[in-house]
Write a protein that binds this DNA or RNA. Structure first.
Ligand SMILES: [Zn+2]
Ligand SMILES: [Zn+2]
Ligand SMILES: [Zn+2]
Ligand SMILES: [Zn+2]
Lengths: 132, 132
DNA sequence: CTTGTAAATGTTATATTATTACATAGTGTT
DNA sequence: AACACTATGTAATAATATAACATTTACAAG
């Protein structure tokens, strides 16, 4: 059973925007888009983003400094994320693959060290871009 | 046989600094450290960093906006990188694990899509920090 | 050696991303 | 009511990164 998070006003506004977007959004583009809703300052955006990342509703695409809604309810507990990124059109998808996530969650390095969290970004050309 | 890259003056200065550093370095901390060697502007640093990343001599730790020398000659061809990051002391190590890199290089997603490049960052507590 | 070209450099200005600091307001619990 | 905790508002500033333009260097082809 997942923990229920009641989003606050700003968190909801910003989550809804990201969730509707077909592509990852950057913080200042979010800011621009929510100014009509009374969110005026970068910090208001970053605070909401921080919280949404923390509770797993969105993820940050680190290589792009952009944010995307989670496609995949399990991230809300695991903090384990994987994405595919097209280097041509910048399309980003969250990868949901049980084998992959098991493999990585159980990965132990040289020293036997195990990790509670990971982020994986794959790069390549998406179907569309490849066939051009 | 690896391709030989003759580093230019600025590239060499900046690579040497990163290579000697026990921890990832940030661009402006690099800038500060090389000003006595005549590198005065951010762009000079970023240009050298871009080139060094391109030829695989250094990697960018995306979640930290910092740069680390490659520990692992194979990255110069593969663009496939994996790191472990301690969330307490920020120690970063490059992971060199043949099984892991084979697994990820051969990974094909739902749609059968394969990728020529990936970046993986594991997070946890290093040995030292765990035993505190 | 000179001409062409790609790579690298130098410099100024500016854009983009993110945080500090401080004051105030709402929410839920005891 | 008193408390703790979370969220909000606002201004200023820090940190990270790129654009635009002029010049210089490295090096290979003719
Ligand atoms: Zn997710
Ligand atoms: Zn594409
Ligand atoms: Zn490497
Ligand atoms: Zn540590």
């Amino acid at each position: 059973m997942e923990k229920q998070h009641n989003l606050s006003k700003n968190q909801k506004i910003i989550f809804d925007l990201i969730d509707k977007s077909p592509e990852p959004l950057k913080a200042y583009s979010i800011l621009f888009n929510v100014q009509k809703k009374g969110i005026n300052a970068p910090l208001q955006v970053y605070r909401a983003l921080d919280k949404l990342v923390e509770i797993g509703k969105i993820h940050k695409i680190e290589s792009r400094n952009a944010f995307i809604a989670c496609q995949n309810s399990s991230c809300q507990i695991s903090k384990a994320t994987a994405f595919s990124i097209c280097e041509s059109c910048e399309k980003v998808s969250e990868i949901s693959n049980t084998k992959l996530s098991k493999y990585l969650s159980n990965f132990a390095d040289q020293a036997g060290m195990k990790y509670n969290k990971y982020n994986l970004e794959f790069f390549g050309l998406c179907k569309k871009c490849k066939s051009k």
